[in-house]
Design a protein around this nucleic acid. Sequence first.
DNA 1: ATCTTTCCCACCTAGGTGTGAACC
DNA 2: ATGGTTCACACCTAGGTGGGAAAG
Lengths: 226, 226
Amino acid sequence: SCMLRLLSAVASGLQAGREKGDPTERGLQVTLEDAELWRKFQHITNEMIVTKNGRRMFPVLKVSVSGLDPNSMYSFLLDFMPADGCRWKFVNGEWVAAGRAEACSEGRSHTGVYIHPDSPNFGAHWMKAAVTFNRVKLTNQVNEEGQILVKSLHKYEPHLHIVSVGSRQRLVSNVSFQETQFIAVTAYQNEEITALKIKYNPFAKAFLDAKHRNIGGQGLPEPKEA
Amino acid sequence: SCMLRLLSAVASGLQAGREKGDPTERGLQVTLEDAELWRKFQHITNEMIVTKNGRRMFPVLKVSVSGLDPNSMYSFLLDFMPADGCRWKFVNGEWVAAGRAEACSEGRSHTGVYIHPDSPNFGAHWMKAAVTFNRVKLTNQVNEEGQILVKSLHKYEPHLHIVSVGSRQRLVSNVSFQETQFIAVTAYQNEEITALKIKYNPFAKAFLDAKHRNIGGQGLPEPKEA
DNA sequence: ATCTTTCCCACCTAGGTGTGAACC
DNA sequence: ATGGTTCACACCTAGGTGGGAAAG
Protein backbone atom coordinates (compact mmCIF):
# COMPACT_ATOMS: atom_id res chain seq x y z
CA SER A 1 0.00 0.00 0.00
CA CYS A 2 3.01 2.19 0.59
CA MET A 3 4.21 1.10 -2.82
CA LEU A 4 0.86 1.88 -4.35
CA ARG A 5 0.74 5.38 -2.93
CA LEU A 6 4.24 6.10 -4.15
CA LEU A 7 3.69 4.91 -7.67
CA SER A 8 0.46 6.84 -7.96
CA ALA A 9 2.33 9.93 -6.79
CA VAL A 10 4.81 9.40 -9.58
CA ALA A 11 2.07 8.77 -12.06
CA SER A 12 0.33 12.06 -11.33
CA GLY A 13 2.22 14.53 -13.45
CA LEU A 14 5.02 12.11 -14.18
CA GLN A 15 3.56 9.62 -16.57
CA ALA A 16 5.51 6.67 -17.83
CA GLY A 17 6.67 6.74 -21.41
CA ARG A 18 4.74 5.12 -24.23
CA GLU A 19 5.25 1.44 -24.39
CA LYS A 20 6.05 1.21 -28.05
CA GLY A 21 6.23 3.29 -31.18
CA ASP A 22 7.34 6.85 -31.62
CA PRO A 23 5.68 9.77 -29.94
CA THR A 24 3.67 12.03 -32.15
CA GLU A 25 3.83 15.76 -32.02
CA ARG A 26 0.97 16.92 -34.14
CA GLY A 27 0.40 20.61 -34.34
CA LEU A 28 3.52 21.37 -32.32
CA GLN A 29 3.58 25.05 -31.52
CA VAL A 30 6.32 27.11 -29.89
CA THR A 31 5.59 30.72 -28.96
CA LEU A 32 8.00 33.35 -27.71
CA GLU A 33 6.83 34.98 -24.49
CA ASP A 34 7.33 38.68 -23.73
CA ALA A 35 7.60 39.31 -27.45
CA GLU A 36 6.63 42.99 -27.08
CA LEU A 37 9.49 43.52 -24.63
CA TRP A 38 11.95 41.77 -26.93
CA ARG A 39 10.82 44.00 -29.80
CA LYS A 40 11.50 47.12 -27.77
CA PHE A 41 15.13 46.04 -27.53
CA GLN A 42 15.29 44.72 -31.07
CA HIS A 43 14.08 48.03 -32.43
CA ILE A 44 17.25 49.81 -31.27
CA THR A 45 19.53 46.76 -31.73
CA ASN A 46 19.74 44.62 -28.63
CA GLU A 47 22.97 44.17 -26.69
CA MET A 48 23.90 41.48 -24.18
CA ILE A 49 26.74 41.82 -21.70
CA VAL A 50 29.33 39.04 -21.67
CA THR A 51 31.78 38.56 -18.81
CA LYS A 52 34.52 36.19 -17.81
CA ASN A 53 32.32 34.42 -15.26
CA GLY A 54 29.19 34.51 -17.40
CA ARG A 55 26.28 36.96 -17.50
CA ARG A 56 22.58 36.20 -17.69
CA MET A 57 20.47 37.45 -20.55
CA PHE A 58 17.84 40.14 -20.25
CA PRO A 59 15.16 39.92 -21.47
CA VAL A 60 14.91 36.25 -20.59
CA LEU A 61 14.21 33.76 -23.35
CA LYS A 62 10.88 32.15 -22.51
CA VAL A 63 8.67 29.96 -24.68
CA SER A 64 5.29 28.34 -24.29
CA VAL A 65 4.89 25.00 -26.00
CA SER A 66 1.94 22.93 -27.05
CA GLY A 67 1.48 19.84 -29.17
CA LEU A 68 4.08 17.61 -27.56
CA ASP A 69 3.16 14.08 -26.56
CA PRO A 70 2.46 14.48 -22.83
CA ASN A 71 3.79 11.02 -22.06
CA SER A 72 7.00 11.16 -24.06
CA MET A 73 10.32 12.47 -22.86
CA TYR A 74 12.04 15.54 -24.29
CA SER A 75 15.05 17.73 -23.64
CA PHE A 76 15.14 21.45 -24.41
CA LEU A 77 18.38 22.90 -25.74
CA LEU A 78 19.53 26.36 -26.61
CA ASP A 79 22.39 27.36 -28.83
CA PHE A 80 23.50 30.58 -30.41
CA MET A 81 24.12 31.04 -34.13
CA PRO A 82 26.18 33.89 -35.52
CA ALA A 83 23.69 36.08 -37.32
CA ASP A 84 26.35 37.16 -39.83
CA GLY A 85 30.11 37.09 -40.35
CA CYS A 86 30.62 40.67 -39.29
CA ARG A 87 32.23 42.47 -36.42
CA TRP A 88 30.07 45.39 -35.37
CA LYS A 89 31.00 48.85 -34.14
CA PHE A 90 28.91 51.49 -32.41
CA VAL A 91 29.77 54.85 -33.93
CA ASN A 92 27.81 58.10 -33.90
CA GLY A 93 24.87 56.50 -32.16
CA GLU A 94 24.46 53.57 -34.52
CA TRP A 95 25.76 50.09 -35.14
CA VAL A 96 27.75 49.58 -38.34
CA ALA A 97 29.28 46.42 -39.73
CA ALA A 98 33.06 46.74 -39.68
CA GLY A 99 34.39 44.18 -42.11
CA ARG A 100 34.58 40.43 -41.89
CA ALA A 101 35.47 38.95 -38.53
CA GLU A 102 38.71 37.13 -37.96
CA ALA A 103 38.41 33.47 -38.89
CA CYS A 104 34.66 33.74 -39.17
CA SER A 105 34.23 31.58 -42.23
CA GLU A 106 30.50 32.17 -42.40
CA GLY A 107 30.03 28.70 -40.91
CA ARG A 108 28.94 28.31 -37.33
CA SER A 109 31.49 29.04 -34.69
CA HIS A 110 31.07 26.73 -31.71
CA THR A 111 29.29 28.50 -28.88
CA GLY A 112 28.38 25.42 -26.88
CA VAL A 113 24.90 24.26 -26.03
CA TYR A 114 22.79 25.11 -23.02
CA ILE A 115 20.60 22.27 -21.80
CA HIS A 116 17.54 23.44 -19.93
CA PRO A 117 17.91 22.23 -16.32
CA ASP A 118 14.48 20.55 -16.36
CA SER A 119 15.76 18.20 -19.06
CA PRO A 120 14.94 15.45 -19.60
CA ASN A 121 11.24 15.60 -18.83
CA PHE A 122 7.82 14.60 -20.03
CA GLY A 123 5.89 16.59 -22.61
CA ALA A 124 3.29 17.27 -19.93
CA HIS A 125 5.93 19.04 -17.84
CA TRP A 126 7.14 21.26 -20.66
CA MET A 127 3.61 22.23 -21.60
CA LYS A 128 2.15 22.95 -18.17
CA ALA A 129 3.97 26.29 -17.92
CA ALA A 130 6.22 28.49 -20.03
CA VAL A 131 9.79 27.21 -20.32
CA THR A 132 12.21 29.80 -19.00
CA PHE A 133 15.89 30.05 -19.87
CA ASN A 134 16.75 32.59 -17.21
CA ARG A 135 19.87 30.75 -16.08
CA VAL A 136 21.74 30.78 -19.40
CA LYS A 137 25.02 32.62 -19.04
CA LEU A 138 27.03 34.28 -21.78
CA THR A 139 30.79 34.41 -21.49
CA ASN A 140 33.82 35.37 -23.55
CA GLN A 141 36.16 32.81 -22.04
CA VAL A 142 36.20 29.03 -21.85
CA ASN A 143 34.58 28.15 -18.57
CA GLU A 144 32.54 25.62 -16.69
CA GLU A 145 30.23 23.45 -18.76
CA GLY A 146 26.86 24.92 -19.65
CA GLN A 147 27.99 28.46 -20.34
CA ILE A 148 27.67 29.93 -23.79
CA LEU A 149 30.87 31.21 -25.40
CA VAL A 150 30.36 34.16 -27.73
CA LYS A 151 32.60 36.72 -29.42
CA SER A 152 32.16 40.28 -28.26
CA LEU A 153 30.90 42.70 -30.89
CA HIS A 154 29.39 39.91 -32.92
CA LYS A 155 25.71 39.37 -33.57
CA TYR A 156 23.89 36.22 -32.50
CA GLU A 157 20.49 34.60 -32.73
CA PRO A 158 19.37 32.08 -30.11
CA HIS A 159 18.01 28.80 -31.47
CA LEU A 160 15.76 26.49 -29.49
CA HIS A 161 15.90 22.77 -30.07
CA ILE A 162 13.47 20.22 -28.71
CA VAL A 163 14.86 16.73 -28.78
CA SER A 164 12.94 13.55 -28.19
CA VAL A 165 14.79 11.43 -25.64
CA GLY A 166 14.37 7.70 -25.63
CA SER A 167 15.24 4.66 -27.60
CA ARG A 168 15.41 6.86 -30.69
CA GLN A 169 16.60 10.42 -30.44
CA ARG A 170 14.83 12.70 -32.87
CA LEU A 171 15.04 16.43 -33.38
CA VAL A 172 11.45 17.45 -32.86
CA SER A 173 11.70 21.18 -33.28
CA ASN A 174 14.27 23.73 -34.28
CA VAL A 175 13.04 27.29 -34.02
CA SER A 176 14.50 30.73 -33.53
CA PHE A 177 13.03 34.15 -33.10
CA GLN A 178 14.32 37.22 -34.91
CA GLU A 179 13.20 39.31 -31.96
CA THR A 180 15.88 37.80 -29.77
CA GLN A 181 18.92 38.72 -31.87
CA PHE A 182 21.59 40.66 -30.01
CA ILE A 183 25.15 41.92 -30.25
CA ALA A 184 27.47 40.63 -27.53
CA VAL A 185 29.32 43.44 -25.72
CA THR A 186 31.56 43.77 -22.69
CA ALA A 187 29.97 47.13 -21.89
CA TYR A 188 26.77 48.66 -23.17
CA GLN A 189 27.28 50.89 -26.20
CA ASN A 190 23.84 52.38 -26.76
CA GLU A 191 22.58 54.24 -23.70
CA GLU A 192 19.01 53.64 -24.82
CA ILE A 193 19.67 49.92 -24.33
CA THR A 194 21.01 50.64 -20.86
CA ALA A 195 17.87 52.62 -20.06
CA LEU A 196 15.60 49.76 -21.18
CA LYS A 197 17.58 47.19 -19.21
CA ILE A 198 17.34 49.32 -16.09
CA LYS A 199 13.67 49.98 -16.64
CA TYR A 200 12.61 46.36 -16.98
CA ASN A 201 15.17 44.21 -15.15
CA PRO A 202 14.28 44.02 -11.45
CA PHE A 203 17.91 43.30 -10.57
CA ALA A 204 18.88 46.73 -11.87
CA LYS A 205 16.35 48.51 -9.69
CA ALA A 206 19.09 50.37 -7.84
CA PHE A 207 19.75 52.42 -10.95
CA LEU A 208 16.09 52.98 -11.63
CA ASP A 209 15.73 54.60 -8.22
CA ALA A 210 18.81 56.73 -8.83
CA LYS A 211 17.31 57.99 -12.06
CA HIS A 212 14.05 58.94 -10.37
CA ARG A 213 15.97 60.71 -7.63
CA ASN A 214 17.94 62.70 -10.18
CA ILE A 215 14.81 63.77 -12.02
CA GLY A 216 13.53 65.31 -8.84
CA GLY A 217 16.69 67.14 -7.85
CA GLN A 218 20.46 67.35 -7.87
CA GLY A 219 22.89 64.92 -9.47
CA LEU A 220 24.64 62.84 -6.87
CA PRO A 221 23.23 61.07 -3.85
CA GLU A 222 25.09 61.84 -0.63
CA PRO A 223 27.79 59.35 0.28
CA LYS A 224 26.63 57.52 3.39
CA GLU A 225 29.09 56.86 6.17
CA ALA A 226 28.65 55.90 9.82
CA SER B 1 25.80 18.91 -39.07
CA CYS B 2 23.91 21.22 -36.79
CA MET B 3 21.71 18.24 -35.99
CA LEU B 4 24.74 16.08 -35.36
CA ARG B 5 26.27 18.52 -32.92
CA LEU B 6 23.04 18.84 -31.01
CA LEU B 7 22.42 15.16 -30.66
CA SER B 8 25.95 14.54 -29.53
CA ALA B 9 25.50 17.26 -26.94
CA VAL B 10 22.45 15.46 -25.67
CA ALA B 11 24.25 12.16 -25.71
CA SER B 12 27.07 13.40 -23.51
CA GLY B 13 25.69 13.06 -20.03
CA LEU B 14 22.16 12.49 -21.26
CA GLN B 15 22.20 9.02 -22.70
CA ALA B 16 19.17 7.51 -24.30
CA GLY B 17 17.40 4.75 -22.44
CA ARG B 18 18.05 1.08 -23.05
CA GLU B 19 16.33 -0.18 -26.10
CA LYS B 20 14.76 -3.21 -24.52
CA GLY B 21 14.61 -5.11 -21.28
CA ASP B 22 14.65 -3.84 -17.75
CA PRO B 23 17.48 -1.86 -16.25
CA THR B 24 19.61 -3.70 -13.76
CA GLU B 25 20.72 -2.19 -10.50
CA ARG B 26 23.32 -4.55 -9.18
CA GLY B 27 24.97 -3.60 -5.94
CA LEU B 28 22.78 -0.55 -5.51
CA GLN B 29 24.12 1.49 -2.63
CA VAL B 30 22.60 4.53 -0.95
CA THR B 31 24.68 6.40 1.63
CA LEU B 32 23.57 9.21 3.91
CA GLU B 33 25.84 12.24 3.67
CA ASP B 34 26.77 14.37 6.69
CA ALA B 35 25.97 11.44 8.91
CA GLU B 36 28.16 12.76 11.74
CA LEU B 37 26.20 16.01 11.78
CA TRP B 38 22.87 14.18 11.77
CA ARG B 39 24.07 12.11 14.72
CA LYS B 40 24.90 15.21 16.72
CA PHE B 41 21.25 16.23 16.44
CA GLN B 42 19.93 12.69 16.88
CA HIS B 43 21.86 12.29 20.12
CA ILE B 44 19.78 14.98 21.84
CA THR B 45 16.56 14.25 19.85
CA ASN B 46 16.31 16.25 16.68
CA GLU B 47 13.58 18.84 16.14
CA MET B 48 12.35 20.38 12.88
CA ILE B 49 10.37 23.61 12.71
CA VAL B 50 7.09 23.48 10.83
CA THR B 51 5.26 26.61 9.66
CA LYS B 52 2.17 27.52 7.75
CA ASN B 53 4.15 28.43 4.63
CA GLY B 54 6.61 25.57 4.97
CA ARG B 55 10.07 25.40 6.55
CA ARG B 56 13.18 23.77 5.16
CA MET B 57 14.94 21.01 7.04
CA PHE B 58 18.30 21.36 8.70
CA PRO B 59 20.44 19.34 8.48
CA VAL B 60 19.65 18.73 4.82
CA LEU B 61 18.90 15.19 3.69
CA LYS B 62 21.61 14.28 1.20
CA VAL B 63 22.46 10.87 -0.24
CA SER B 64 25.12 9.54 -2.54
CA VAL B 65 24.03 6.72 -4.80
CA SER B 66 25.87 4.09 -6.79
CA GLY B 67 24.82 0.98 -8.64
CA LEU B 68 22.02 2.45 -10.76
CA ASP B 69 21.91 1.75 -14.46
CA PRO B 70 23.49 4.94 -15.89
CA ASN B 71 21.28 4.81 -18.96
CA SER B 72 17.95 4.16 -17.29
CA MET B 73 15.59 6.77 -15.95
CA TYR B 74 14.70 7.16 -12.28
CA SER B 75 12.78 9.49 -10.01
CA PHE B 76 13.77 10.17 -6.40
CA LEU B 77 10.97 10.59 -3.87
CA LEU B 78 10.88 11.43 -0.20
CA ASP B 79 8.11 10.78 2.25
CA PHE B 80 7.83 10.90 5.99
CA MET B 81 6.64 8.01 8.14
CA PRO B 82 5.41 8.48 11.69
CA ALA B 83 8.06 6.88 13.86
CA ASP B 84 5.43 5.95 16.45
CA GLY B 85 1.85 6.69 17.44
CA CYS B 86 2.79 9.06 20.22
CA ARG B 87 2.49 12.73 20.88
CA TRP B 88 5.66 14.01 22.51
CA LYS B 89 6.21 16.61 25.20
CA PHE B 90 9.37 18.38 26.31
CA VAL B 91 9.38 18.53 30.10
CA ASN B 92 12.27 19.05 32.50
CA GLY B 93 14.78 19.07 29.70
CA GLU B 94 13.73 15.83 28.07
CA TRP B 95 11.23 14.47 25.59
CA VAL B 96 8.58 12.13 26.98
CA ALA B 97 5.82 10.28 25.14
CA ALA B 98 2.47 11.68 26.23
CA GLY B 99 -0.09 9.08 25.31
CA ARG B 100 -1.44 8.01 21.97
CA ALA B 101 -2.07 10.69 19.43
CA GLU B 102 -5.52 11.63 18.30
CA ALA B 103 -6.65 9.45 15.42
CA CYS B 104 -3.18 8.04 14.98
CA SER B 105 -4.16 4.48 14.34
CA GLU B 106 -0.57 3.30 14.13
CA GLY B 107 -0.95 3.18 10.34
CA ARG B 108 0.64 5.81 8.16
CA SER B 109 -0.90 9.21 8.22
CA HIS B 110 -0.67 10.86 4.81
CA THR B 111 2.16 13.41 4.74
CA GLY B 112 2.36 13.75 0.99
CA VAL B 113 5.36 12.96 -1.15
CA TYR B 114 8.22 15.21 -2.18
CA ILE B 115 9.55 14.54 -5.67
CA HIS B 116 13.16 15.60 -6.12
CA PRO B 117 13.15 18.43 -8.67
CA ASP B 118 15.75 16.70 -10.85
CA SER B 119 13.22 13.91 -11.46
CA PRO B 120 12.98 12.20 -13.80
CA ASN B 121 16.60 11.70 -14.78
CA PHE B 122 19.19 9.18 -15.86
CA GLY B 123 21.05 7.00 -13.42
CA ALA B 124 24.23 8.75 -14.54
CA HIS B 125 22.82 12.06 -13.35
CA TRP B 126 21.85 10.79 -9.91
CA MET B 127 25.23 9.15 -9.41
CA LYS B 128 27.51 11.93 -10.60
CA ALA B 129 27.01 13.93 -7.39
CA ALA B 130 25.20 13.61 -4.06
CA VAL B 131 21.44 14.07 -4.32
CA THR B 132 20.35 16.94 -2.09
CA PHE B 133 16.86 17.45 -0.71
CA ASN B 134 17.46 20.99 0.53
CA ARG B 135 14.21 22.33 -0.91
CA VAL B 136 11.81 20.06 0.98
CA LYS B 137 9.47 22.09 3.14
CA LEU B 138 7.61 20.94 6.22
CA THR B 139 4.24 22.47 7.01
CA ASN B 140 1.35 21.98 9.39
CA GLN B 141 -1.36 23.14 6.99
CA VAL B 142 -2.57 21.98 3.62
CA ASN B 143 -0.69 24.02 1.07
CA GLU B 144 0.73 24.09 -2.40
CA GLU B 145 1.72 20.76 -3.89
CA GLY B 146 5.11 19.40 -2.93
CA GLN B 147 5.10 20.44 0.70
CA ILE B 148 5.16 17.84 3.44
CA LEU B 149 2.31 17.94 5.94
CA VAL B 150 3.26 16.78 9.44
CA LYS B 151 1.70 16.95 12.89
CA SER B 152 3.51 19.09 15.39
CA LEU B 153 4.94 17.23 18.40
CA HIS B 154 4.97 13.97 16.51
CA LYS B 155 8.06 12.01 15.53
CA TYR B 156 8.90 11.22 11.90
CA GLU B 157 11.45 9.33 9.88
CA PRO B 158 12.20 10.37 6.28
CA HIS B 159 12.08 7.57 3.72
CA LEU B 160 13.81 7.73 0.34
CA HIS B 161 12.31 5.94 -2.63
CA ILE B 162 13.99 5.43 -5.95
CA VAL B 163 11.54 4.57 -8.69
CA SER B 164 12.40 3.33 -12.14
CA VAL B 165 10.53 5.42 -14.70
CA GLY B 166 9.70 3.97 -18.06
CA SER B 167 7.47 1.45 -19.70
CA ARG B 168 7.40 -0.41 -16.40
CA GLN B 169 7.54 1.46 -13.12
CA ARG B 170 9.40 -0.44 -10.44
CA LEU B 171 10.32 0.51 -6.92
CA VAL B 172 14.08 0.16 -7.03
CA SER B 173 15.00 1.19 -3.53
CA ASN B 174 13.27 2.06 -0.29
CA VAL B 175 15.63 3.17 2.45
CA SER B 176 15.53 5.31 5.55
CA PHE B 177 18.11 6.42 8.04
CA GLN B 178 17.55 6.34 11.79
CA GLU B 179 19.89 9.31 12.09
CA THR B 180 17.37 11.56 10.40
CA GLN B 181 14.43 11.04 12.77
CA PHE B 182 13.01 14.23 14.23
CA ILE B 183 10.10 15.64 16.19
CA ALA B 184 8.11 18.32 14.37
CA VAL B 185 7.71 21.50 16.44
CA THR B 186 6.38 24.99 15.89
CA ALA B 187 9.11 26.40 18.14
CA TYR B 188 12.31 24.77 19.35
CA GLN B 189 11.95 23.09 22.73
CA ASN B 190 15.48 22.01 23.52
CA GLU B 191 17.89 24.94 23.55
CA GLU B 192 20.76 22.57 22.74
CA ILE B 193 19.02 21.89 19.43
CA THR B 194 18.75 25.63 18.82
CA ALA B 195 22.45 26.00 19.54
CA LEU B 196 23.36 23.25 17.04
CA LYS B 197 21.10 24.73 14.34
CA ILE B 198 22.67 28.14 14.80
CA LYS B 199 26.17 26.69 14.84
CA TYR B 200 25.87 24.75 11.59
CA ASN B 201 23.17 26.42 9.46
CA PRO B 202 24.69 29.31 7.48
CA PHE B 203 21.30 31.01 7.26
CA ALA B 204 21.28 31.39 11.04
CA LYS B 205 24.65 33.12 11.11
CA ALA B 206 23.08 36.29 12.50
CA PHE B 207 22.52 34.53 15.82
CA LEU B 208 25.96 32.96 15.81
CA ASP B 209 27.50 36.41 15.58
CA ALA B 210 25.26 37.71 18.37
CA LYS B 211 26.40 34.89 20.61
CA HIS B 212 30.06 35.64 19.96
CA ARG B 213 29.51 39.32 20.55
CA ASN B 214 27.86 38.65 23.88
CA ILE B 215 30.73 36.47 25.02
CA GLY B 216 33.13 39.30 24.43
CA GLY B 217 31.17 42.08 26.06
CA GLN B 218 27.83 43.69 26.81
CA GLY B 219 24.44 42.34 25.90
CA LEU B 220 22.83 44.38 23.20
CA PRO B 221 24.28 45.72 19.95
CA GLU B 222 23.69 49.41 19.35
CA PRO B 223 20.65 50.23 17.27
CA LYS B 224 21.84 51.63 13.96
CA GLU B 225 20.18 54.69 12.50
CA ALA B 226 21.23 57.25 9.90
C1' DA C 1 -1.88 29.63 34.52
C1' DT C 2 0.19 26.82 30.96
C1' DC C 3 1.27 25.26 26.53
C1' DT C 4 1.29 25.84 21.59
C1' DT C 5 0.98 28.55 17.51
C1' DT C 6 1.30 32.73 14.69
C1' DC C 7 3.21 36.89 13.11
C1' DC C 8 6.61 40.46 12.27
C1' DC C 9 11.28 41.44 12.43
C1' DA C 10 16.45 42.18 12.02
C1' DC C 11 19.99 39.76 10.14
C1' DC C 12 21.90 36.73 7.36
C1' DT C 13 23.13 33.83 2.58
C1' DA C 14 23.34 33.88 -2.30
C1' DG C 15 23.74 36.09 -6.21
C1' DG C 16 22.09 39.38 -10.25
C1' DT C 17 22.60 44.78 -11.76
C1' DG C 18 25.13 48.75 -14.06
C1' DT C 19 28.91 52.08 -12.66
C1' DG C 20 33.25 54.08 -13.14
C1' DA C 21 37.98 53.71 -12.64
C1' DA C 22 41.79 51.02 -13.94
C1' DC C 23 43.89 48.26 -17.13
C1' DC C 24 45.57 46.67 -21.65
C1' DA D 1 45.19 58.85 -28.02
C1' DT D 2 41.62 55.24 -28.80
C1' DG D 3 38.71 51.45 -27.96
C1' DG D 4 37.75 47.31 -25.68
C1' DT D 5 37.98 44.66 -21.29
C1' DT D 6 38.32 43.84 -16.36
C1' DC D 7 37.50 44.61 -11.57
C1' DA D 8 35.69 46.13 -7.11
C1' DC D 9 31.67 48.07 -5.56
C1' DA D 10 27.08 49.82 -3.88
C1' DC D 11 22.61 48.49 -4.44
C1' DC D 12 19.25 45.62 -5.46
C1' DT D 13 16.16 40.80 -5.65
C1' DA D 14 14.94 36.63 -3.41
C1' DG D 15 14.50 34.11 0.31
C1' DG D 16 16.21 31.25 4.61
C1' DT D 17 17.24 32.02 10.12
C1' DG D 18 15.69 32.18 15.11
C1' DG D 19 13.87 35.77 18.41
C1' DG D 20 10.19 37.64 20.88
C1' DA D 21 5.75 39.52 21.39
C1' DA D 22 1.18 38.44 20.82
C1' DA D 23 -2.52 35.52 20.13
C1' DG D 24 -5.16 31.33 20.70
